[in-house]
Nucleic acid binder design. Sequence first.
DNA 1: CATTTGAGCTAGACAGAGTCTAAAGCCGGG
DNA 2: CCCGGCTTTAGACTCTGTCTAGCTCAAATG
Lengths: 143, 143
Amino acid sequence: MASATATLPVEKDAIPSLLQQHGISPTAQRVEIAGILLSKCQHLSADQVLTRLTEHGASVSKATVYNTLGLFAERGLVRQVIVDPAKVFYDSNVAPHHHFYNVDDGNLIDVNAAEVPIEHLPHAPDGTVAEAVDIVIRVRNTG
Amino acid sequence: MASATATLPVEKDAIPSLLQQHGISPTAQRVEIAGILLSKCQHLSADQVLTRLTEHGASVSKATVYNTLGLFAERGLVRQVIVDPAKVFYDSNVAPHHHFYNVDDGNLIDVNAAEVPIEHLPHAPDGTVAEAVDIVIRVRNTG
DNA sequence: CATTTGAGCTAGACAGAGTCTAAAGCCGGG
DNA sequence: CCCGGCTTTAGACTCTGTCTAGCTCAAATG
């Protein structure tokens, strides 16, 4: 059940076992969705995943796409990125990193965590534990 | 038109001139909305602002609340906080700071920027300029 | 072999946040 | 007094995401 995170892109054949390593039974639809998202380092919304599925000729329902992406995120196979008020992006890169977010065109670019050294974090409020630190550098087109 | 950010809470009487300092003509509705949001250091969604308006007996339409909050954010009078995929929060504190976000109960707590020292930022991608750096520390209730 | 059980999938209804549109109100200048 | 621009408004609309109720299929059971 631990995270045996493969380097991107993940080969088609490797997907079923990768799912199983994350405690996810590899159904046809899940393999299909993972195949699209993990095919390279990218950020896709649920809707974009759905579109690509239909382009690939695979017919997966909207509910399944949402359920599956939620499941993948919960099990650490992908990561949610919340930068756009309108929708959630799913990031195929689960290594610790941050993001540039272009507010003009909605473009999202990875930033290696090592490039943003943080000396120390403040203590989490009483009764809570820190779970993740998300850094978003909002950029805007010049001119 | 520059930012003459008053310390919170902003007195009722000071609101019209504060709006004007940000290049916003102080209509009755805008003064009402600013009065609620700037009454203390807090994070409110558009919907929460709308609710408080009606509680105060002021009748402002939904469209106006959204338009006005968007305008305030654009002019630097308040700040958008994007942490919850479902809705945007408007932060009355525009001083540089970050946030704890409790994913269990949706609670949002300010973190002084000085408590999260960042040595240096990576260069923004070509053709873009950094505009803001948002750090969100996601926490979860213990037990 | 028939039956049951349960996980997973699906279509479509639904909910909530936010945007758009078309009309109406307000207000200052000529 | 009238005109023109800015602001507000109600309500329709869009879009993302969730929920429900039924269906499928495969594995376990008798």
